[in-house]
């Protein structure tokens, strides 16, 4: 993370030259503490985690340093048995890992899709003018303000199989005829996780989209209304295209968050194999089994998948994240 500091060429004359170079030098010293800090808490640990993934480190080796280099064995290795059959080992040959990858992708896709669609709806409501709009905005901030662990616990209680109020509601209405063990059953565990995540994160999405909506000039709607164009048509032809940049940024923030999900699932459905994500699997390997080699290989793969996704997204979607181009 080195940067070349240079004076602005347009103004490099006389006194301004020294002024510019003084500013540039000051800028370097202003940036240095933050860069050093980020190096120690982000770059170095990331580098060490990647290094661990090429060793057979166990939890105790962290203290003693007695681990050995094993190359790509944690990722994929094979051995030919006496009978000629090949035995595959490593993360990439691990069915549990592929299950976690699939769970993570499924969760990220479905939660972000739901949150975008519902967040846009809430944003459209908040963008309308009506009495009590401030109150509605305050209300939707509540799920966002509640810590994830707390919401996992609250919903865990509401989704309880015997005493939960969700089952009680559904039984009263008649949607189900016997209580459902939401968090324990393989086919409903993911639904439970999605419910909580959508409830908790839609407000954030709605606020980001609302900020985008408010940048669209009001007179566009006015003139469309005078021309008698149907509001649904205005929405698809005017609002959505103008909203696209804001939506793209909001979606990538959410996808990155969803791909690394850990806390909600760890608390809400700790036992269910149907909701094990890549973070959870890697954490188990590291903390419960103390296998730092394979656990680090799993976390490194997650990092690579996320990095690849970001690059593809920025490249394909031409998202201007830094805000440099618009200036």
């Amino acid at each position: 993370m080195t940067t070349t500091i240079s004076a602005n060429p347009e103004r490099s004359r006389g006194r301004e030259t020294s002024l510019q170079s003084q500013r540039a030098r000051a800028a370097f010293w202003f940036l240095a503490p933050m860069l050093v800090m980020l190096f120690f808490v982000a770059a170095w640990p990331l580098f060490r985690s990647i290094m661990f993934s090429f060793t057979d480190a166990e939890a105790n080796d962290i203290f003693t340093g007695g681990s050995e280099w094993v190359g790509f064995d944690n990722y994929l290795s094979w051995r030919v048995r006496d009978d000629g059959s090949i035995r595959w080992r490593g993360v990439l040959a691990d069915a549990d890992w592929w299950n976690a990858v699939w769970n993570t992708i499924r969760f990220a896709f479905m939660s972000v899709a739901l949150e975008t669609v519902l967040g846009l709806l809430v944003a459209l409501v908040l963008n309308a003018e009506f009495k009590g709009r401030g109150l509605v905005r305050a209300a939707i901030l509540i799920p966002w303000a509640i810590p994830t662990i707390v919401s996992a616990r609250m919903w865990g209680w509401m989704l309880n199989d015997q005493f939960g109020i969700i089952n009680d509601m559904l039984l009263t209405v008649g949607f189900i005829d016997s209580p459902i063990a939401w968090t324990a059953r393989a086919d409903t565990a993911m639904i439970a996780v999605l419910m909580v995540d959508v409830w908790k994160t839609t407000p954030f999405m709605a606020l980001l989209i609302l900020a985008g909506l408010q940048m669209i000039p009001r007179d566009m709607y006015e003139s469309a209304k005078i021309d008698g164009i149907h509001p649904m048509k205005v929405f698809f032809r005017v609002t959505l295209p103008l909203l696209k940049p804001a939506l793209m940024v909001a979606v990538i923030f959410r996808v990155l968050d969803a791909l690394r999900i850990f806390d909600l699932i760890y608390v809400l459905t700790p036992q269910s194999e149907a909701t094990v994500t890549m973070s959870i699997l890697s954490y188990r390997e590291l903390q419960q089994f103390g296998d730092y080699g394979e656990g680090s290989a799993q976390s490194t793969l997650l990092f690579l998948i996320i990095a690849l996704f970001v690059l593809l997204y920025i490249w394909l979607g031409r998202v201007d994240l830094s805000g440099e181009r618009s200036k």
Binding site: L46, Y283, V310
Partner: peptide
């Protein structure tokens, strides 16, 4: 936007 798990063992 780092996945926190990716730096866990290094940290």
């Amino acid at each position: 936007m780092f996945p926190q798990i990716a730096v866990l063992s290094g940290l």
